[in-house]
Amino acid sequence: MSKSLPTPLEGVFRRVPGVRWRQQAERHLRVELSEAENLPALLALLKGEAGYRHLSAISCVDWPDADEFELVYHLDSYTTQVLISAHIRLPAAPGRYVSVSGLYRPAGFFERDIHEMFGVQFEGALDLRPFILTEWGGPPPMRKSFDTEGYVRDHYQWVDYGPEWLAELEKRGGGIVE
C-alpha cells in the first residue's frame, strides 16, 4: 500500500465499509469493494467530497469460471488528479445492478452498452434499448460463452477460392496444407 493518499480520499474510503485500495500505477488507485451494494455510496462521496465529477468509463468483465461479472468504474477528478478504478463483482445470475446515471450522466451510455453486450440489467437506467445491435436476436455477444466463430459457421456460407493455379497444383499432387 502506498503511504500518501490525497486527504479527501482518506476520509471517503474510511466511511464506506469493505473498501480496499492500492496503488495500481502512478496516480491511479485500484479500489475494491467487497460488497457491491456500497458502490453508489462510494461514488456519491467521491463526487460530493473529493471532486470526482468525471466518470471516465464503466467496464464490464465476464468471469464465467466464477459465475460473476466484474464492473469497474473509472473516475477522475479535475482537481485531485488521481484516477480511481473501483471494482465490484456481481453474480452472473441474475446479473442485476443499480444504475448510477443519476449521479453520473455518462453512466447512461455505458450501462446501455453493457446491457446490450453482456446482458447485465441496471435498475433505474436512463435507457436500455438496443443501440448498436438493434436487429440482433442472439445472446449478449460479449459474454465469453458466445462463440463468434461458431456463430459465423452456423449463419454464413463460406465461399472458397478456386483459382486455376490451385486446380493445376492439385492435379500434380499438391494443394492447400491444412
Binding site: L169, G173, G174, G175, I176, V177
Partner: peptide, 8 residues
C-alpha cells in the same frame, strides 16, 4: 495466409 504444397 495458407500454406500450399507443391511437389515440384
Amino acid at each position: 495466409i495458407r500454406m500450399v504444397h507443391d511437389p515440384e
